[in-house]
Design a binder for these strands. Structure first.
Lengths: 218, 218
DNA sequence: AGAATAATGTAACCGAGTTAACTTTGTTCC
DNA sequence: GGAACAAAGTTAACTCGGTTACATTATTCT
């Protein structure tokens, strides 16, 4: 609080906004720490609020629900698939772009691919998948992701919006299941490096299946 | 209560069981009627319990959550896709069986296809899709449906369990989106008969896409 | 500095879901 | 038919997520 008050340009975020941002992160981090220690359902939001030194109504002014204390991170990923399609090189097909992006995520051990054995990420995933109400809310995010991807695909192909939406549904479902499978194995004790080969071939096969159809079942 | 007590064979369901069944239906029906009148969120479960002449804890012994008062009907459909695959004629492929089943649903105006302009069904669908917490819980049912279908496909093909699960994810997503699209148009005022042709061709194209892949995006 | 505005805290409230103690009712075995 | 047992029901009180009303405090604007 030294030189902050002199900032009055309309351009940058004001004191209030920055304060809010910091509080947002702080509360979420406090909450997740508590949830990891004792389990999501065992920690009342009143306890989170107390630990973060704010009142309960204030907490709910920052986060609409208890679940969002954990899941707001996923809000950033809602547009990911649609962005990948929208910003791909002109000559690259949407599916190619998405496949590359997913494989790239596997290499970087991006948490969203499920292939990540970092202790904290693993603990976080256990928290996530082990709490039904969190999983339920995760589906809401995926629905938005699906809608966004549908729009991007529709624009990319210039064609049928329903067909695009159907394609988006299949793609998001595939990514979800691939990530879940990777996490399942990591959770069972395998290392990311051990799982990586299978994860890679599984992803390639899955995208191949998206491209060429469910021939084994047709 | 005239001749019920004489039934003592271990085979048939006793008085208690039958009473439970009747109560189950009665409570659910009472609840849905109230929800349709005033909206899901505007009716406290206490009011439902009072209207059904039972206490609140009893209500929750019948239904684990408020949402299940509405959604228990879908529990019957959880195994539908997997059953279709498991009980199909030997020479028919899983996808063919599922496609036939879906088209058959369209013809019968089965509510699960979304193509149904019956006043009560339409009102029910509005209640369903217009209530976020109900939609959220619907996804849980679909996840179970997906898992069951995955198992059925895996057994049908005798092959890769993961591939089967991925296929199941794609199929369930497609059916969900087709049904949603049909409902959307019916909700917008079109009759089922008016929508039927589009719904049929859309379904055929969608299953075609499942069989032969997302070629427009690859 | 001081008025206007936005964020916070307090306290009380609502509704979903649970628990415990106790009564009623269906089942069972003589 | 009636005692004994278990399942289901009621009541009342409780926990917890989330909201509301209102007073208080901080921030911004002039």
């Amino acid at each position: 609080m030294t030189d902050e008050e002199v900032v009055t340009e309309t351009g940058g975020p004001g004191l209030r906004e920055r304060k809010r941002q910091r509080m947002y992160e702080a509360v979420s981090e406090t909450a997740i720490t508590l949830f990891l220690e004792k389990g999501f359902e065992k920690v009342p939001v009143a306890e989170v609020a107390a630990a973060a030194d704010i009142s309960k109504p204030t907490l709910f002014r920052y986060f609409p629900t208890k679940e969002d204390l954990v899941l707001h991170r996923f809000a950033d990923h809602v547009d990911e698939a649609s962005r990948v399609v929208a910003t791909r090189p002109t000559k690259r097909s949407p599916l190619d772009a998405l496949q590359r992006h997913f494989l790239d995520g596997l290499e970087r051990q991006d948490p969203v691919t499920g292939l990540c054995d970092n202790v904290h990420v693993l603990a976080f995933h256990r928290l996530l998948y082990g709490t039904p109400s969190l999983v339920a809310r995760l589906y809401a995010y995926q629905e938005r992701s699906e809608a966004a991807l549908g729009k991007a695909l529709s624009e990319a192909s210039g064609g049928d919006a329903l067909a695009a939406r159907l394609a988006a549904g299949q793609i998001i479902a595939v990514q979800r299941i691939l990530a879940l499978e990777n996490w399942r194995r990591i959770d069972a004790g395998e290392t990311a490096e051990a799982v990586r080969p299978d994860a890679t071939t599984a992803a390639n096969r899955a995208f191949g299946q998206l491209r060429s159809g469910l021939t084994p079942y047709a």
